[in-house]
């Protein structure tokens, strides 16, 4: 049996859309911090990361749109799909909570996203590889920023330590999903287009364990994983997020500034 060299258009569309959805949803979460940051400086820091993510999302949506079997554009994909059509990880849609919750979510994602992108730069698909090459520098800064805060808050005051620990515990059920490869991931991996998600896990765990230890935080154990994002089974938080994000384009279709 010969291995197909190129993915089907549908597979490539769906695979690209997953990555776009991750960036878009997390961007929307970070933008919700605008004007609410704990410090003016951090307010801009978080929204800068959001801007990086929306840049990545746009490139990925444009590519997805070019692969779709009907004429659509990036805006249709971002603003006109219902929650069950979104394929982002459950982690990124979790609410902002307090600053520690946001940082826990961000760090756990960044520590996954960076090696994910590093692998994707070697993709057989030249467009995905090019988008990854551009994004990888941004992700390198993101993980530096979020890991700094995990350490500061964990190893900070009694209150910041407690909040950071609670936040790590709260995001932990959503970690396992990042490393689960479904059939699409498997097919994309076999033809060297996609990323080997399982291979990311051990590096992620050792890196995160080291930082948590450094930050005097403990790693949650025996946590029951919650999964389903890639299959469109989301937590209720995505509904609220999309309701807000899509309100304007849905109420005024094709509106121009």
């Amino acid at each position: 049996m010969s291995t197909p060299l190129a993915p089907t258009k549908n597979d490539l569309y769906a695979y690209t859309l997953r990555q776009a959805d991750n960036s878009m949803v997390l961007c929307q979460r970070l933008c919700q911090w605008a004007a609410r940051g704990p410090e003016l400086e951090e307010d801009i820091g978080l929204t800068n990361i959001g801007l990086d993510l929306i840049g990545q999302a746009r490139s990925l949506y444009q590519y997805s749109a070019s692969l779709f079997d009907r004429p659509v554009d990036e805006n249709d994909l971002a603003f006109l799909r219902d929650p069950h059509e979104w394929s982002n990880l459950l982690l990124v849609e979790q609410p902002n909570g307090d600053f520690a919750d946001t940082i826990a979510r961000q760090y756990c994602y960044d520590a996954w996203h960076l090696p994910f992108l590093e692998q994707l730069t070697a993709s057989n698909d030249t467009t995905l590889a090019a988008i990854a090459a551009k994004s990888v520098k941004e992700a390198r800064y993101h993980v530096r920023h979020s890991s700094m805060w995990v350490k500061r808050l964990g190893d900070g005051t009694e209150v910041s330590h407690r909040r950071m620990q609670d936040a790590i515990t709260a995001v932990w059920p959503f970690i396992a999903e990042m490393f689960i490869a479904d059939e699409l991931d498997q097919r994309m991996l076999e033809i060297d287009v996609g990323v080997d998600l399982r291979a990311l896990q051990s590096a992620w765990e050792s890196q995160v364990s080291a930082l948590l230890a450094n930050a005097t935080l403990s790693k949650p154990i025996d946590v029951k994983a919650i999964v389903g994002g890639r299959q469109g089974q989301h937590t209720e938080h995505l509904d609220d997020l999309l309701l807000e994000m899509q309100a304007l384009p849905r109420s005024m279709p094709n509106h121009q500034w």
Binding site: L40, E41, G45, N48, Y141
Partner: peptide, 20 residues
Amino acid sequence: SLRAADAEMALQNARDLYTR
């Protein structure tokens, strides 16, 4: 100028505020 707890945070904040 900016506010930061220490030099590391000051550099990151400076990057975010003044080189974007």
